[in-house]
Amino acid sequence: MDTRPWLLLPLLLVLGVVLSYAVLSIPDPAQELPTMLTDNMTISGAHNPVSAVLLNFRGYDTLLEMGVLLAALLGVWSLDEMPIYRGSAPDQILDIMSRQLIPVFILVAGYLVWAGADAPGGAFQAGALLGAAGVLLRLCGWRVNNRYSGLPLRVLLVLGLAMFVMVGTGALLIGSEFLRYPPTVASELMLIIESAATLSIGATLAALFLGGRPKGEE
């Protein structure tokens, strides 16, 4: 049953007015942080400021966020097995189109990771594209070979987070702070992390779409 409490609308109205007033009256920001960002861009190893924030300055957020993605997958896998897909066989057009499209998806994803260092792009956009490729493949009736649905699939799923943690711990081992990249190899390290993250994000999104753990896991 849908419910419409009579008090709700006035309450939300008040909330809306308060929030709007807060947004409109917001004081002018301190410009210190953006300036610091620009000053440190050169040693961050990325030329695109968003990538620099995501992977270097606030890389720890991104590490935990890879954790969130993996945790959601763990949750989904704990709930159910993969449902049996009852689609009819794809018709010829879809079949041919998907065969043409998937390589393009992968190519563009690779480009996005590469371009992410200097221009808008990066692991999440590329991963989303890979995920879409996975969804398309699935809808065309393709499935993961049982041989790969065990450990190899799991390795692929944790790769992004694992690479992040490994690079972070590596920094500890050479005596600097967790996740601090040595400036000389910062861009290389970030590319490695991004590539690993792209694969994991793509695989995770596709696996989330499938909606359950692979059969025969228990």
Binding site: E32, M36, L37, N40, R58, Y60, S176, E177, R180
Partner: peptide
């Protein structure tokens, strides 16, 4: 206080 990534607040976490 420990700067993650070696940047320190406000730039880092």
């Amino acid at each position: 206080r420990y700067p993650m990534g070696g940047w320190g607040a406000p730039l880092g976490i």
